[in-house]
Design a binder for these strands. Sequence first.
DNA 1: CGGTTGACCAAGT
DNA 2: GACTTGGCCAACC
Length: 103
Amino acid sequence: MNNKKSFYEKCYSILKKVPKGKITTYKEIANALGTKAYRTVGNAMNKNPYAPNVACHRVVNSNGNVGGFASGNKKKIEMLKKEGIKIKGKKIQNINKFLYRFN
DNA sequence: CGGTTGACCAAGT
DNA sequence: GACTTGGCCAACC
């Protein structure tokens, strides 16, 4: 096993901890890793080599915006709605309620 | 090693 | 509420 994970891979590991029906933000992930590289987290999601394995659509912006999605941000919204997330246009409703926090 | 690239964030206008 | 600016940081070339 290779324990030397890139920052990207750490992001995927964190993301895997998020249960279905919950979401997280790029900032929260970066914070969980003890860094401020919010942008680098987004970069990791954009590459997302573990596409079906990692639910990259459960990551949103801190301000409640859905953010982006490699295959079309509309798809992302639809998937989130299916998981029970309330979305208005491109904005998450009650984000505080769905936001999952890492301990 | 220096410059570019972002699915970001916060504050200002 | 929409747009701009500056700051942040790892990966990539």
